[in-house]
Amino acid sequence: MGKLPDHGFGLLLLLPALVLVSLMVLYPLARNVHLSFYEKDLHSGLESRFAGWYNYQRLGHDSRFFTSFFNTVFFTGVSVSIELLLGLGFALVLNASFPARGAIRAMALIPWALPTAVMAMAWTWIYNDVYGVLNDVLLRLGIIDEGVAWLGTPSAARWAVIFADVWKTTPFVSIILLAGLQSIPADLCEAIRIDGAKAVQGFRLVTLPLLLPSMVVALLFRTVHAFGIFDLIYVLTGGGPGGATETVSVYVYYNLFRYLDFGYAAALVVATFLVLLLVAILTYLPMLKREVELG
C-alpha cells in the first residue's frame, strides 16, 4: 500500500467519502431529477406518468415560485451579510486574551446550539404583540408607544425572520472565523507588532487575507444553508403574512406534503439546485483558482 503513487493513494482516501455521499445524497438526487420529468400527483392517482418538460413549463409561469425565489434571495443576501460582519466582530473579540474566555466562547455558541424548532416557537412568543418580551422591553424603555406585531405585517415579518436567523447562525460564522484567526501563526502577529504597524493596518493587510479561506467556506455554507432554510420560517410565519416570507424550501415542502404534487416539487428542486450550482461554481471556482495561485 505504501507503494501507491500519490494520486492513486489520494483516490483511495477519497473513497469512503464518495461512497457515503453517493449512497445518501447523489442517488436520491438522481431519482429526484428523474421524477421531475414525470407527473406524479393526485390527478395521476399518484402514478408516475411521463410528462417530458411539462413541469418545467409550469414552473416558468409560476409567479408563486418566482416570488418565493426572490424572497429567498433577499433573505439569504441580507442574513449572510449581517452574519459575516457580526461573526467577524465576535470572532475578533473571542480571539483576544481575557479572563473567562472559555466560558464566554461557550456562551457565544448558545444560539447555534439550541434546536431550531424550539427557538422558532420561542420567537413567535417573544414577538407576540400582547405578551411578548420584545414589546415589553421596548415599551419600558420608551422606544415604542404600543405593542408592535412584529410578525403581523409583511415588511416587519421579513426583518423579524432575518433577525431570528441571524441570531441563530452568527455563532456558526464566528466560530469558523475564530478557528481561522487562531491558525494565524504567532510569530506573524509578533512581526506585525514589532514593525509598529497600527492594529487596523495589520488587520487589513495581513489578517484579512489569511482569513480569506475560512471566510469563503463560512460564506459558502451559510449561503447554502440560508437558501434552504425551512424550520424557522415554517414555525414563525408559515410563509406569511400574505406569502411575504415564503421561501423556496417552504414552497417545495407544501408541494410535497400538502399538495402531493411530487413531479412538480422535483422540478422545483432541480431548477433551484441548478441555479445554486451555477452561482456556487461561478463564485467558488475563481476563489479556488486564487487559492492555487497564492500557493
Partner: peptide, 18 residues
C-alpha cells in the same frame, strides 16, 4: 390543501393591508 393555501395567502395579504 392547495385551495386553503390560496385563500390563506390572499386573505392574509388583505388583512395586513398589503
Amino acid at each position: 390543501a392547495q385551495l386553503s393555501d390560496i385563500v390563506q395567502r390572499h386573505a392574509s395579504a388583505a388583512l395586513t393591508g398589503k
